[in-house]
Write a protein that binds this DNA or RNA. Structure first.
Lengths: 242, 242
DNA sequence: CGTCGGGTTGATAACTTTCAAATTTCGTGG
DNA sequence: CCACGAAATTTGAAAGTTATCAACCCGACG
């Protein structure tokens, strides 16, 4: 795949117009390609880690484990997302990052990243924008866990993933491919897998959306947005170019 | 209060040794003192805001509102915390920040902050550390909402606040002053105020902690830590000085 | 084949909210 | 200084939501 069409490039171009030199640097960052199988740990909680990955293909999740074995998924990452940006700043990772499909990534050494930042301010702004957007998504997730019902929360997650995938050309208002299991959904939504199953059934029976065979289908997009209280403001942050 | 003893200074010094010039810059940042009454909006969701505040005295909370009026508090801020750092980067705030007591702050214009960053790298590292620590707290809060019971979550919040206050010399293992109402606790914990009340009663009856008249008292600190699954790792992040 | 990781469903239990009301606390005006 | 009303806390009873436990089904895969 030409770098011009990489998910990260697509995503950035929506928010910052990229110059030729920007594209050149971006191509440079995409040079070291690697693949990992499903269920592979990219970042291990408590361990030092200094590589950053640009996710090109496949899905990943970041999560924390509690002492009693319970797991909470903090976020899913999809193509175009950057993994491990925080660990450039912190020596020790405070959470896990694990693949949930086979993935393709570009590995970026932290020096490369820093020099890219220094040389192409526009790209730096774009990546910072991405990082802050991710933080906003975590906050929205927190709000959902605290104040939305299981059904609203589930609908919200699927809508957010849809909006994110749309940005990299992988989803529409009709639906998208989604490799999540009901166990993964449960750990993200703070529910049990059994209850996720019932919620999905209910959404299907109400003809709002269906999730079968790795495909999310929106049956009534507008009604679903209304049910979830989905407001894209937090995804469409306007960045200050001060 | 001499700036040397300001909560922010205390907090930073735990993690980065500050030089004389660092102290001078810090004093400069503390120059423009302002006070606000209880229930005052410092940052309004959807509005542009370009001031950063260093909280010197009193408590503040940041929260989001849902369309149906439900509220979720994302975090409380205590003396030494910095307010509105994110809004230097983003034009539009995606959440509210409101005082929950009368407060004293130092207002910092974003140019001042940026020049302080440029001139005193050690201070910059310290402030970045603070920002990332805050992000880690949000993640831990999310984990609690998703996977901890009401009781565990409540205990965890009080322990975290205790640890944070301890860092600025305002709390010990015995307890601390805490101006939160049960409504505020409820909106932070994703519960109703009624249920918060019952949880507090239970913690009191189990002789783990009590919360009365604006004072948190730890009755059995170790047992409480165990119950909450409280692990300070996420608060004691080790920063990379790369 | 046999097993194993999903997915699905039912019955029951546990936890949390909702609704209602009484009590206490606290700031303010008289 | 007291009285008043508003806000916060406390408690009980009933309803609603979600978890737990226990099956059973199915397709992939060694």
């Amino acid at each position: 795949m030409p770098v011009r069409d990489s998910p990260l490039t697509k995503k950035l171009e929506v928010f910052v117009p990229l110059s030729e030199p920007d594209h050149a640097v971006l191509a440079e960052l995409h040079r070291r390609r690697r693949t990992f199988p499903n269920r592979h740990d990219l970042v291990h909680q408590g361990e030092a880690n200094h590589s950053v990955y640009i996710l090109a293909k496949g899905w990943v999740c970041s999560y924390k484990l509690l002492a009693d074995g319970k797991r909470q998924i903090v976020d899913f990452q999809i193509p175009g997302d950057i993994l491990g940006l925080r660990s450039v700043l912190f020596r020790i990772a405070d959470h896990f990052v694990q693949t949930i499909t086979d993935v393709e990534v570009s590995e970026v050494k932290d020096e490369e990243l820093l020099s890219a930042f220094a040389n192409t301010p526009r790209l730096a702004v774009g990546l910072l924008w991405g990082a802050s957007r991710e933080e906003a998504m975590v906050v929205e997730h927190l709000v959902g866990l605290g104040r939305r019902s299981a059904t609203e929360r589930t609908a919200h997650l699927f809508l957010e993933l849809g909006a994110r995938l749309h940005l990299v050309g992988m989803g529409t208002k009709d639906g998208y491919e989604c490799p999540l299991s009901q166990y993964l959904l449960a750990d993200a939504l703070g529910l049990t897998a059994v209850h996720v199953n019932r919620v999905l059934r209910q959404l299907r029976e109400r003809k709002l959306m269906s999730f079968h065979n790795g495909y999310v289908e929106f049956l009534d997009f507008d009604a679903l947005v209304k049910l979830a209280g989905f407001d894209t403001d937090y995804l469409d942050q306007d960045i200050s170019l001060a």
